[in-house]
Each structure stands twice: as C-alpha cells, then as structure tokens.
C-alpha cells in the first residue's frame, strides 16, 4: 500500500515537468518560420492564397494563440504528434516503430558501461598502485575526448572494411529469412560494434562518477567503524563503500539520461541502426521539423520515465529515502 502511494506520489510529481515539456514544445513549434500550410504548399509546388487560407483554417493556424495551445494539448494527449511529410506517415507511429531498437542499443550499452565503469572506478579509487590509478584516470580523460561517432567510423574501417569480421549496418542482415537461434545470432553480431562503441563512450562518465563516489564515501566514519571491527580492506570496499557509492551513480544516470541519449543518436546514424537517431538524421536532412519536435517530445517523456525508475531504484537502495513523501 505504501509502495503504491509512493509510486503515485512520484508520478504526480512528474506531471508538471511533463506539462512544461508540452509547453516548450508548443512554443518551439510556433517559433518555426513558416507554418504547416507553407510546408504543404511547398510540397505541392504552388498554391493560391485562397488555398493557403483554407489550409490554415484547417490546421487552426488562424486561431488565437491560447486556442491553438489548447488544440495542441488535446492532440498531444492522444499522442497525435502531427504528420511527417518526409515519410508521409504519422510522427507518433514512426517514432514508436523505432523506439525498441534504440532501447535495445542503449540498454545494453548502459549495462556494459555501468558494470565495467563502476568496477574500474572502484579500482582507481582504492588501488595502492599509483600507475594503475593514473592509467584509469587517463583512460577516462581520453574516453571523454573521443567523439563516439568518429570512433564508430574508425572501427567500421577496421572490423568491417579491413578485417571483414563484423557487419557495419542495420539490426539484422537484410533479406535474410533466418529465425530462432540463427536470427538471434545475426542480431547479436550486428549489435557488437554499436553497443561496444556506445558503451565505450559512456564508460568515461561512469569511471569518473564511481571514482569520485568511492573516494567520498571512503572518508565517511562508518568505513572506519568497519575497519575497527576487523573487516579486511576488501570487505570494507565491497560491503561498505561500494553499495553507498552506487547511490549517487544511479541517481546521476537518471539525471544525465537526456545527455546519454545524445550519444545514441549520433552513433545510430553511423551504424544505420533503425532507431530514433536515424529518424533524427532523416528529419534534419529534410528539415522535417514536425518529426524532429515529435522526437524531442517523446524522448523527453522517455527521460521523465527513466527518472522515475531511477528514483525507485534509489529508494530501494537507500532506506533513508522514506518512499517519496519527504524530499
């Protein structure tokens, strides 16, 4: 019961943020030079002023701003995100068709990066070997500096063009009718490079986060208590420091999720991954602002959802968070 109440409370808190996303999106839409009628007229080649006026009243562009806003909110509430003229399809369906591919890519990459990055961060923060600490630190600095999409292109050169080991584009082999294990294997082979590359680009952040968190937690009194009761160093680190250090790392994953998504967008275009990033590229190249705004809206809501999830994990990790209500 308390858990349900807490969940509802969190959900309620997310509503104003979601509303602000809607408002901002509306204003961005209005800030676009030209309106829908111009776009259609452009597509059609030429249009008479009468036809334009008719279109405008059809789209409600001749209404006062507040009325337009209400109409917009009504549409958004039913997930009507408008029409993409580039694809000649509804924006919502375009996006939801590709959401799963992005989720798969990001989920796997995040999992890898969190596990490996946290482990390296712990090692960096606790090792007595100065060279090892510096090496991991250097690795994190370099990881920050490598543009993910460029790294992607370079490993395509190496593994696809030179060595011919891995496929460089798509989620599966086009035209292949494999299914079952064979299909799974096909997808896995296609996943190796995009996931590895994206995970690498996230890695630096997690190394740094975990390194700092472990360093901070190590200074806390309860670690000394653990030592005073006879815990070995390894036990102090893994039983007492690491669980406490994971708390801020989880929270920051939620907060930074919007930024993490950016890495995925550029990398997807490198590997022709059939996800949101490719959609974004298509929208940019054809200046399809409807599609792009739809993407912005859906991904923002997505980040809100991820935030809710990480908060739930946070509450589960840290008993001091009294299930939402206080904070």
């Amino acid at each position: 019961m308390r858990a349900l109440k807490a969940a509802l409370w969190r959900l309620a808190q997310a509503v104003p943020v979601a509303l602000m996303v809607v408002v901002l999106n509306f204003f961005l839409l209005k800030a676009v030079p030209g309106d829908m009628a111009d776009v259609i007229a452009g597509e059609a080649g030429a249009a008479t002023p009468e036809f334009m006026a008719q279109l405008r009243s059809q789209f409600g562009d001749d209404q006062p701003l507040p009325a337009q806003f209400i109409a917009y909110v009504k549409k958004v509430a039913t997930f009507d995100l408008g029409w993409s003229f580039r694809y000649n399809a509804s924006v919502a369906s375009l996006i939801f068709d590709r959401l799963a591919a992005t989720l798969l890519l990001m989920g796997l990459a995040l999992l890898l990066a969190v596990l490996l990055g946290s482990a390296l961060g712990v090692v960096a923060a606790t090792t007595r070997q100065g060279w090892l600490r510096r090496l991991i630190g250097l690795f994190a600095t370099l990881g920050f500096a490598l543009p993910a999409f460029w790294l992607g292109l370079m490993i395509v050169v190496l593994f696809t063009l030179k060595l011919g080991w891995l496929p460089s584009s798509g989620l599966d082999t086009m035209g292949s009718d494999a299914h079952g294990w064979a299909y799974l294997r096909d997808v896995t082979v296609h996943l190796v490079m995009p996931v590895g590359c994206l995970a690498f680009s996230y890695l630096a952040m997690y190394i740094r986060l975990m390194h700092e968190a472990v360093r901070d937690v190590s200074q806390l009194d309860f670690v000394r208590t653990a030592r005073a009761k006879g815990s070995s160093r390894r036990r102090q680190v893994w039983r007492h420091v690491v669980p406490n250090a994971l708390v801020p790392v989880v929270t920051l994953t939620g907060v930074q999720f919007g930024a993490l998504l950016s890495g995925s967008v550029t990398l997807e275009t490198v590997f022709a991954w059939p996800g949101l990033g490719q959609l974004a590229l298509a929208a940019v190249s054809s200046r399809d602002i409807n599609l792009l705004l739809g993407l912005l809206f859906v991904t923002s809501l997505f980040v809100v959802v991820v935030n809710l999830l990480t908060e739930a994990v946070h509450g589960w990790l840290d008993p001091r968070i009294e299930h939402g209500a206080r904070r």
């Binding site: 030079p33 950016s262 967008v265 550029t266 940019v284 602002i289 912005l296 923002s300 935030n307």
Partner: peptide, 22 residues
C-alpha cells in the same frame, strides 16, 4: 530549478538540433 530540470530532461542533442534548424 524547475526550468533547469526541464532543460536537463530534454535530450540535449535533439534539443540543439531543433533550435539550430529553427
């Protein structure tokens, strides 16, 4: 801080794409 939160939530690259295109 609500505004800050909002800007943090919007995926930065897509947001920048929208702004630059507009």
């Amino acid at each position: 801080m609500r505004v800050t939160e909002l800007f943090q939530i919007m995926p930065s690259l897509i947001f920048t794409l929208v702004l630059v295109i507009i």
